[in-house]
Design a protein around this nucleic acid. Sequence first.
DNA 1: CGATCAATTGACCGACCTCAAGAGGTGTGG
DNA 2: CCACACCTCTTGAGGTCGGTCAATTGATCG
Lengths: 251, 251
Amino acid sequence: MSANPVNIRRSALPARLSHYTHLTAEERGALEQAEQQERRLVAGALLVGVSAPIDSLFVVQQGWLHSSVTLANGARQILRFHYPGDLIGTSSIAWSQAATALTAVSDCIVTEVPKANLGRLFATHGRIGGLLYAIAAAESVALADRLTSIGRMNAIERLATLLLDIMARLRVTAGGVIDSFDLPLTQADLGDALGLTKVHVNRTFREMEARGMVTRNGRRVHIVDEKALIAFTGFVDRYAVIATEWLPAAA
Amino acid sequence: MSANPVNIRRSALPARLSHYTHLTAEERGALEQAEQQERRLVAGALLVGVSAPIDSLFVVQQGWLHSSVTLANGARQILRFHYPGDLIGTSSIAWSQAATALTAVSDCIVTEVPKANLGRLFATHGRIGGLLYAIAAAESVALADRLTSIGRMNAIERLATLLLDIMARLRVTAGGVIDSFDLPLTQADLGDALGLTKVHVNRTFREMEARGMVTRNGRRVHIVDEKALIAFTGFVDRYAVIATEWLPAAA
DNA sequence: CGATCAATTGACCGACCTCAAGAGGTGTGG
DNA sequence: CCACACCTCTTGAGGTCGGTCAATTGATCG
């Protein structure tokens, strides 16, 4: 364990940013100094509750989380999944209370970034600010894709799109090309993400198997023919590439 | 007409940012210099098509626009509405092609902001960068609210939420408190925004009238009892306040 | 004054929901 | 090491909200 809480080595955030553009050693250092103590969560643990006062963001280092809201009638909507390298809790930037709950899907490790540190980062390293803005824009488009999926697609297309989305996002971290992955979500979770009931998620999954689109083995999901599924859903990978040429050159 | 295309006076963007924090004269000048020529659009005109190569963003000065996508089966999803003071086309920051179409809902005026100018702005005025980031985070939460609405609410709640959302957003510009507004959208548009058909939007609107929630007169929509409607939908205004205390003080 | 578009209404349909029960798997305590 | 509790997955039967199709009305505009 190399747990120096202030100087985390090899944080997932600079690694993620490096995926899109070259960072100078100085920039990387500034990023790592913004991060503070580490928190470990077991699967299912709540990191932040809705309306909790909060003045930090978090960087996901390991594992999955999701952000969600629960309505007055008890219904839940899962808004987004978060993976290593994501800067999360961004709604606390705009307000001093959390707009959504953050829950660990699998066991995970996050590090805290106080808002003030982020402010300093924007002021002193505008290039990083621009890059964070670009990533936020890309995530916003991915969220819009989910909206489109729920608003205008049937159950099988929704589930297929979500599976492709998860796989695309895992690839940014995993590096290589993968065609299967462990899905640490219950069918109730999937339903809450897709605007369906768990019962219908089940039927939809079975229908996808019957059509030869996926196979399942426990939590493991295997995408049989990704190209065909992409053609079927019109899915677009929003994570693979992000333009950075509009940012000024590194100092 | 004071149409100097390079030095637009009183752009809506600095006015919007001033709504949330004080801008120095210098910051205001930098913002205004980033904006370039002005474009006027008639209602229904397409500003940017999907997949169009694009290396500018736009500031809405007057009127409404929306961003949308059209699926292979012809279905359309309207993702978001844009009002004066909004910086739009942000997906072109992350990629060199537009991810969504931008269409004028009413006659409107926009000014162009080349991506490179935005990059310079982030590098030289980090505080503005942080503020834009905060606004983007707030809009992302508003989009998540729409997602929740479509995923987990019935037709009447969805329409009510959208009407409240539009009114809240208009208030940022209109200033005062309003309880009615002109809705330049067809019922087909509303359906595409809500994940409903235009036929069902019609029935839903009539049901809302029958229940005494709204009255309509041509394009004019009047919210009868806003408090009750907010309680009914759980709507949260994401535009009224945005925290800025985490940004370093102005230089 | 015809043409076009938006709003409206009716009849019927179907994708997804609700309710309910059973099966399989896992952890825990006795 | 078994028994029980609990959770998730699975399947069936029947209901409903919103969709589809189609026709009519009303408004706007050359």
